[in-house]
Write a protein that binds this DNA or RNA. Structure first.
Length: 462
DNA sequence: GGAACTCGCCAC
DNA sequence: AAACGTGGCGAGTTCC
């Protein structure tokens, strides 16, 4: 097949809009009774936490400072109390240069009551951003989130009224509280099919770095493991030992992904130190997460010649150099060429035929075509699946999409067929149709049981 | 009373 | 030389 053109891009979005609009019409069933009860429960709990907060010195000082205008939901007032009245030295600052009052910062400040502020914030977020919105948007017990293809600079999608693409997932309490409200139609089940490591795979289709291709092709190679071993200077790194599994996550989320998005060693060192609980000072040997042999990671690093944070940061700088100039040298060369070509031409094209015109920063030029084309893999699959469901008169319906995942409302009698077809479309038909896809694609599934809420999802393997 | 802004936080 | 990409949305705040 020849290179995809802007006409192909147009047709993808044209068909995409039609398929997405059908999903919008189906929508998701909402448990209104639960919504009502959960909102009341949260409101009750918030009131209780507020009463507790009223007993603290923090609240009393706050009241003195702001009088009748006191509002514990105001982060500006809180900022005033912490950094002006208490004169604490800001750990982090906002873009505008003020001391931050976010979760990460507040949990490091030793002032009684801040934990209550955070708990209240979290509960209100669940109630006001999600549950309240579902109730407002529902029609006859169904929400119909919109899926837009015309809003996003990268040619990804967005979703609104309500946004279906930011439903809590990692935080267990928030995940359960929100997803407990969402169901498939009566007698049906929910299914989510996610591409695995899609953006990394699509990036590899642009740069074709042989080391990366090997990581993506071989089951036995593990990039995050290798980076964890290098970042923390561990020779016998076995990812199945829990302490090492944790360091692998730290390497993945604190170094590898940020590097792919364009971060540099200063931010990565800071992030890695947070993950591993290392201080921004001299290491005594007692700080940090514990290794399998029982010693703290700071002690291990001291033995490796890294005696303080500056030396740690410098080590991360060296790993970064090695990452781009040796390990993924071809990837780096592609980035340089890609940027230079944009600077020459004034635009760049995605592998899916989309043309990006405009004034972009370096990281945007590198990231947009990857982010866009990765989503287009999902959209293409979504369209094929929609056609197949229609042509085969299936009762199962597509109902949503989250950048690299599709969500379906499945008739249990069709579960096997649907599962097989999604596998076929995403891992066989897609790479066969778009021959620029030069890495194997993989997809994973989650389902609920019939008439169970989305909170009760579990991994599905045949 | 609404527009535009900051800040915070949820997803990928 | 500079330094993490894309959204939506709520609350609070300020300005008009």
């Amino acid at each position: 097949m020849s290179k995809l053109t802007q006409k192909d891009a147009y047709e993808l979005f044209h068909e995409g809009v039609l398929a997405l609009s059908k999903a919008e019409q189906v929508g998701m069933r909402i448990d209104l009774n639960y919504l009502h009860k959960e909102k009341k429960r949260i409101t009750f709990k918030v009131k209780h936490l507020e009463r507790e907060l009223h007993q603290t010195k923090l609240y009393k000082d706050w009241e003195k400072y702001f009088g009748a205008k006191i509002n514990i939901n105001s982060s500006l007032q809180l900022r005033d109390i912490l950094y002006n009245k208490y004169k604490l030295k800001p750990i982090n600052t906002t873009a505008a240069g003020f001391g931050k009052t976010d979760d990460e910062t507040l949990s490091q400040i030793d002032v009684l009551g801040l934990d209550l502020i955070l708990k209240i914030r979290k509960l209100q977020k669940i109630r006001d951003t999600y549950l309240e919105n579902f109730e407002r948007e529902q029609v006859d017990g169904y929400i119909h989130p919109f899926f837009n293809l015309h809003n996003v600079i990268t040619f990804r999608s967005s979703s609104d009224r309500p946004n279906f693409q930011n439903i809590p997932k990692r935080d267990k309490e928030a995940m359960k509280a929100v997803r407990r409200a969402i169901y498939a139609r009566p007698g049906h089940l929910l299914m989510e099919a996610d591409f695995s490591k899609l953006e990394v795979s699509i990036a590899a289709c642009y740069h074709k770095d042989p080391t990366m291709l090997k990581y993506l092709t071989s089951e036995h190679n593990d990039m995050h493991r290798d980076l964890a071993a290098q970042l923390f200077k561990i020779d016998d790194f076995d990812r199945h030992i829990p302490e090492y599994g944790y360091l692998r996550s730290a390497a993945k989320n604190g170094f590898v992904f940020p590097q792919f998005y364009g971060d540099y060693y200063v931010g990565c060192a800071d992030s890695l130190a947070k993950w591993t609980k290392l201080p921004h000072s001299r290491f005594s040997g007692k700080e940090g997460v514990t290794l399998p042999n029982g010693i703290p990671i700071s002690s291990h690093l001291i033995n490796q010649g890294i005696k303080n944070y500056n030396q740690f940061e410098n080590h991360i700088k060296q790993v970064e150099d090695d990452f781009w100039n040796r390990r993924f040298k071809v990837y780096q060369q592609w980035k340089d060429r890609w940027l230079a070509a944009y600077q020459r031409k004034g635009y760049f094209d995605s592998l899916t035929g989309f043309r990006y015109r405009g004034i972009y920063r370096r990281n945007q030029v590198i990231n947009y075509p990857v982010q866009g084309a990765a989503f287009h893999c999902l959209l293409w699959s979504f369209i094929q699946m929609d056609k197949w469901l229609f042509e085969n008169n299936m009762d199962t319906k597509l109902i949503g999409q989250i950048h690299d995942a599709m969500v379906l409302d499945v008739n249990p009698n069709e579960l096997q067929k649907v599962y097989q077809k999604i596998r076929e479309i995403t891992t066989q038909q897609l790479p066969a149709t778009w021959d620029w896809i030069i890495v194997p694609l993989d997809i994973s599934f989650e389902i609920t049981d019939v008439d169970k809420p989305w909170a009760d999802k579990y991994e599905y393997e045949v």
